[in-house]
Write a protein that binds this DNA or RNA. Sequence first.
DNA 1: CTATCTGTTCTGAC
DNA 2: TGTCAGAACAGATA
Length: 287
Amino acid sequence: MPELPEVETLKLGLQKYIVGKKILSVLVKDRKVFSGDEKNAVGATIIAIRRFAKGIVIDLDNNYSFAIHIKLTGQLIFRDEKIKDLLVLRPSPQKVPNAFTRVTLVLSGKSFLYFNEVRGFAWMKLLKTKDVLMLPFFKSLGPEAIATSSSKQALTLPLFESIVHKSNVAIKPFLMDQAKIGGVGNIYANDACFAAKIDPRRKAKILSKAEIQTLFDSLLQVLKKALHYRGSSELNFVDVLGKLGEYQKHMLVYGRKGKPCMRDDGGVIEKIKLTGRGTYFCDKCQK
DNA sequence: CTATCTGTTCTGAC
DNA sequence: TGTCAGAACAGATA
């Protein structure tokens, strides 16, 4: 699933539904995706939700935090008496908890937060709040494409220019390198290159100042649009209530192999592999 | 059926 | 240090 817009969507939902709730118990069904001692969360109250690039942090009032990365197929779904199974999950099963529910937080007010995961790559760790940023994932993050108040550093145009200018990799994989820029994944890296009319295969360091500026604007525009649509649900991303995002209906090039270019310039969307990842572009307008 | 695809990140090799 | 291929895994699709 997730890139920055999806994780931000999730964060906003968690802020709305679980902040202020007390953790009554933590049921760990699969130790593979969970680390830490769940007893340290029991009895604590959730006081804040933070996002760092594609990572989520749930802060408790006892100096512990859950750090979560949902990787490709993780879900965090909230349910209470009012919100039952009125919302649609995809893929099925339509209900939570289900076979993919690996951790359940039992919360006050007869409510639950389910951590679902299909492929087993996602993780949830319970650790001291002060240690969260020392985890390898958080520690290595570069400036955030779209910063929040908790971000370590925001991406600015001058910063973007200086990092792009130093890099010897192709611009699309460059955008996806979390150590360079936090939060951008494959869908939005593809769409940002298209929006900026830049060939994803070009080396970052050879882009002109004007191209870098256009790409910076395009990247932010694409991410903001995706956030507006509450993310993409190509596979199984859902928000905290189990609702699908809508950006997949508005993708510029991602997943559009063989289809005509949106610019109606006679170009057709090609798909190639670039550092192992599916890369989509129109070779008519992306130079 | 087999083969290949998948939105991420981490490790190990060069 | 920077870059890249492959691995971790399960399921959907061709």
